[in-house]
């Protein structure tokens, strides 16, 4: 190749231009995530903020259990919906936290070879079951099971939705918790084992404390999953407005309310805007949960 003239060394060529073009396109793809998150907030707010200026009575929204959007004097109290979501998510965590942390420790620290692979595949299959199928299982199998076992008239309730949701949230919690355990350096384990600790003592006193942040994040992400789940809760919870006093009460969740009612509202109506307002609320809460989980993982919580 001939040396380029000294006046303009290394002229820009087609490859150079192509590279710049590709870089621009890839950068656009790179920030697409940010644009979409902003877009979601903007578009959901655009439809829902009308509710704030027109109908929103914040006190009613937060303290009244009366969600009567279609009555002659509509009221939009979301307390019962929040209670429904909270009770189902809470019960789901009671189910999934012990199950998934236990499974993460077993898979990460005890299981070996083929057993380990098989368990991981099964957990992946658990994660693969679509939420509408979970809802169908709640509606049928779990419903019958609860009626039979607890001798109650209806099996679509907090217990049903909680168990279903717990199983749905478990795979992601297991995976992230296992990653957190795996991230603990082997040197810690070897040092403790050299001092004569049993494997369980090592896990309990060394590995779990070292992986604490990751485990907390795993639980938080599980909470986020449960909180935002829609179809399964809609189908398994009984979908009736209630502030539950027992696990056998039917409830209605925030997400399920939107899914069930949006189809029947006229675009721009107060009811329609109220449902979008619930959407904003859901978006903000899940955003906060995910942000917290992210901060916890990086261990920035205490500066």
């Amino acid at each position: 190749m001939a040396a380029p003239s000294p006046a303009r060394p290394g002229a820009r060529d087609l490859a150079w231009a192509g590279d710049k073009l590709a870089q621009g396109v890839i950068f656009l793809g790179g920030i697409s995530g940010i644009l979409l998150v902003i877009g979601i907030f903007v578009f959901v707010s655009r439809e829902g903020l009308g509710f704030v200026s027109n109908g929103l009575d914040l006190r009613e929204f937060l303290t009244s259990p009366a969600w009567r959007p279609t009555s002659n004097h509509p009221t939009f109290g979301a307390l019962a919906l929040m209670a429904g979501t909270a009770s189902v998510t809470g019960l789901a965590m009671l189910v999934s936290v012990p199950l998934s942390l236990g499974a993460a420790i077993f898979i990460g620290e005890f299981a070996k070879g083929r057993t380990r692979e098989l368990l991981k595949v099964l957990i992946e299959m658990l994660a693969a079951i679509p939420s509408v199928v979970w809802g169908f299982i709640g509606l049928t199998m779990m419903n019958e099971l609860i009626i039979d076992v607890f001798n109650v008239p209806v099996g679509l309730n907090v217990l049903n939705a909680g168990i279903i949701l717990g199983l749905m949230a478990a795979p992601i919690m297991t995976t992230i918790a296992e990653d957190a355990l795996k991230a603990v350096p082997d040197g810690y384990r070897q040092a403790a084992e050299a001092m004569g600790a049993t494997r369980w003592q090592v896990i309990w006193r060394v590995v779990i404390p070292a992986a604490k942040n990751g485990l907390v994040a795993a639980v938080l992400l599980g909470v986020g999953r449960g909180f935002g789940e829609t179809m399964a809760v809609l189908m398994a919870s009984g979908h009736s407005i209630n502030i539950p006093t027992s696990p056998f009460d039917s409830v209605r969740a925030l997400t399920a309310t939107i899914a069930a009612e949006l189809g029947e509202t006229a675009v721009g109506s107060e009811h329609y805007q109220a449902l979008f307002f619930l959407g904003i609320f859901l978006f903000v809460v899940t955003f906060a949960i995910n942000l917290t989980a992210d901060l916890v993982v990086r261990g920035i919580k205490n500066g």
């Binding site: 190749m1 040396a3 060394p9 290394g10 002229a11 820009r12 060529d13 490859a15 150079w16 590279d19």
Partner: peptide
Amino acid sequence: WANVYALRRR
């Protein structure tokens, strides 16, 4: 060199 790639090719 305006084109770093041309430099590296040499």
